[in-house]
């Protein structure tokens, strides 16, 4: 489940702007516990590219070798929108079950 989520986190990051690989890893690492092994992002990116959800472009860098930039394709944007809808449903369903009792408890205690 985590890996499926990471995939869409990548698409979400790319929906804001283009990133190169190392940058994506840094952004994902900022979110605690999301990325256990940084390297797994690269097979994932390769797959997203093969699936046509992202496209890549080599661009020069001022500080070193050229960098491979990833950009969201229209297919990728569609997949992201679809996932957002699914995720919301999923999150609500899980939340309602996970926190039902607690809400009931806190409601009772405020009474």
């Amino acid at each position: 489940m985590r890996r499926g989520a990471i995939e869409f986190c990548v698409l979400a990051l790319l929906s804001r702007r283009e990133h190169y690989g190392f940058e994506l890893v840094q952004r994902l690492s900022e979110a605690d516990g999301l990325l256990t092994s940084e390297g797994t992002i690269y097979p994932l990116l390769s797959r997203l590219r093969r699936d046509g959800l992202v496209e890549t472009e080599w661009r020069e860098s001022t500080s070193g070798p050229p960098r491979k930039y990833y950009r969201l394709t229209s297919d990728g944007a569609r997949a992201l929108g679809h996932y957002r809808g699914q995720w919301e449903q999923f999150r609500n369903a899980v939340n309602s079950l996970l926190y039902e009792d607690q809400e009931a408890v806190s409601e009772r205690s405020t009474d």
Partner: peptide, 14 residues
């Protein structure tokens, strides 16, 4: 770990 990640296919896209 990397090899395992590489073998996974995303279910959403063919």
């Amino acid at each position: 770990e990397l090899a395992q990640a590489a073998r996974e296919r995303s279910p959403e896209s063919e």
